[in-house]
């Protein structure tokens, strides 16, 4: 029983990094209804800038963190301007492919900065372990868990308690009506994108400092894990991102524990596939409900 609980705990810990990644993804997808494949590579740019600084000058860790987040925000804004803002209605696939092209670009830019496969990354805690009774936890991951919960709470407040959030939700519901209400759709979208990239940047920094190293796989890893966690939890929703991230972490931990690393990934994809087939909206999916509510009333009096 104790090993089982320990594995679950490990899964929840790693899952919080997936949850954080999914949070940024969900924000972008929720607002734009478009897929940003460059999400991970944007994080990678920030992380690599931070790493470059770290191995050249060895600044305090918080400076590395700031650079990592700022770098991924900059890259995110670049992606939005190039792949999303200029492409009009009905060009969702083009936006996605365009963001893939920029993925290639950002990844090569990162590798030009730091060509080796892996580099050291500053740790927040020194990688120590804490024991809680019979269980072992890593403070690194506790920080991540706390960051995930704090960010999702902050994001919820932002969406439901501020004018910016009101505008964002209005755009999601009907961007034409939003612009007719005086909401600057383009600027609001850009801000949302920057915010999502910042969340991604924080996620990237925390993951790397827990691993104490950064590798060239970061871009692909972050995009895939964020995307899978978002799909498992529920498209474009904050609680969905968290639930999806944690679920993915637990699934991976147990399958790895039972069958090894290859089966770990296999199990994650199998669960994702089966879930999508049986429950396309994800664990907390609300799409079906939403469609019904949007239609009722609106058409009741319409004669056509």
């Amino acid at each position: 029983m104790i090993p089982f609980i320990q594995t679950t705990l490990d899964g929840l810990m790693v899952g919080s990094s997936y949850g954080l990644l999914a949070l940024g993804f969900a924000l972008i997808f929720g607002v734009m209804r478009r897929l940003n494949l460059s999400y991970g590579p944007s994080i990678m740019i920030g992380a690599y800038l931070g790493t470059l600084l770290y191995i050249k000058f060895g600044p305090p860790t918080y400076v590395v963190a700031i650079v990592a987040v700022a770098g991924s925000v900059m890259a995110g804004i670049y992606v939005e301007r190039l792949c999303f803002a200029p492409l009009g209605v009905g060009a969702g696939v083009a936006s996605m492919v365009s963001s893939f092209a920029i993925w290639m670009q950002l990844e090569q830019a990162s590798l030009l900065m730091l060509p080796r496969h892996s580099y050291p990354f500053p740790s927040l805690t020194g990688g120590e372990l804490w024991s809680l009774g019979p269980f072992v936890v890593r403070p690194d991951y506790l920080i991540m868990l706390a960051a995930m919960l704090a960010m999702s709470a902050a994001l919820t407040l932002l969406l439901y308690r501020t004018r910016f959030g009101l505008g964002l939700r209005a755009i999601v519901e009907n961007s034409l009506a939003a612009s007719l209400s005086g909401i600057d759709v383009e600027r609001t979208m850009l801000k949302a994108f920057a915010l999502a990239s910042a969340i991604g940047g924080v996620a990237g920094f925390l993951v790397l400092s827990a691993n104490q190293q950064v590798t060239a796989m970061l871009g692909m890893w972050a995009t895939l894990k964020g995307l899978i966690a978002m799909m498992i939890g529920g498209l474009g929703s904050i609680p969905g991102a968290i639930v999806g991230g944690l679920a993915l972490g637990v699934i991976e931990a147990h399958s790895q524990n039972l069958f090894g690393p290859q089966v770990r990934d296999l199990a994650a994809y199998a669960v994702l596939f089966v879930l999508l087939v049986l429950r396309p909206g994800g664990i907390l999916g609300t799409t079906a409900v939403r469609r019904g509510m949007g239609q009722r009333g609106g058409d009741r009096w319409t004669t056509t």
Binding site: R163, L166, G167, R169, A170, E173, N174, L176, A177, A178, L180, S181, G182, I183, R290, M293, G294, G298
Partner: peptide, 17 residues
Amino acid sequence: LVFPQMSVRENLLAGAY
């Protein structure tokens, strides 16, 4: 073109954005 998933009050607030 009201915002269907937002409350009446929020719709009004959006108008005063």
